[in-house]
Amino acid sequence: MYNLLYKELRLAAHPNLFVFTLLGALVLVPAYPYGMVFLFGCLGPFITFTYGREINDIYYTSLLPVKKRDIVKSKIALVVVSQMAQLLISLPFALLRLRVLPAGNPAGIEANVAYYGFGLMIYTMFNLIFLTHFFKSGYRVGWSFLFAMIPATLGVLCMETAVHFPQFAWLDSVEKAMMFKQLPILLVGGVVYILGIAVAYRVSAKRFEMVDL
């Protein structure tokens, strides 16, 4: 598995995947809809999968001494690594903004505990649809991305809009007590993300086994 992930990073990953992963730092922008960070986290895999198709990556990998489902596993591992790296990269900037921008984010949700929980759920919606649809064929990236981006974008819109309603103001807070109250959202997000990846892998691998390359 390590060798396959190394192959993904060294040969299959488009440079833009790394750029979009670094965009976790956007949570330091004073007034910005931070939900965009998660959409960039979906755009990176899309560009890499498109690039992979152009460079015949799946073809080459299938000639290596690996099983067909290992190809699915390595692609999913790349998506998980890039999304988790994006969140990790954003963390120090989220902490820094508390000191340098204490006035908060007027454009939408704060980079708080709830934000990361919702982010994991948004990634899950995208991953489930994008990966399972893509591995039906191994090459139809555009439609897979379109179908997956609709719920992911709606998720971001809901998150960004909800915090403008007074009854959801606690979701927009960076106060310790409020963030403690937000903790279940993060926990649910984490569980949903892990389950989502497991389901995406099982379904994708099953579908890809049937694909004729």
């Binding site: 040969l11 460079i55 015949n56 990556d57 073809y59 080459y60 000639l63």
Partner: peptide
């Protein structure tokens, strides 16, 4: 596989 380019860049 003749005629198929891998990782051309």
């Amino acid at each position: 596989l003749g005629g198929i380019d891998f990782y051309s860049h």
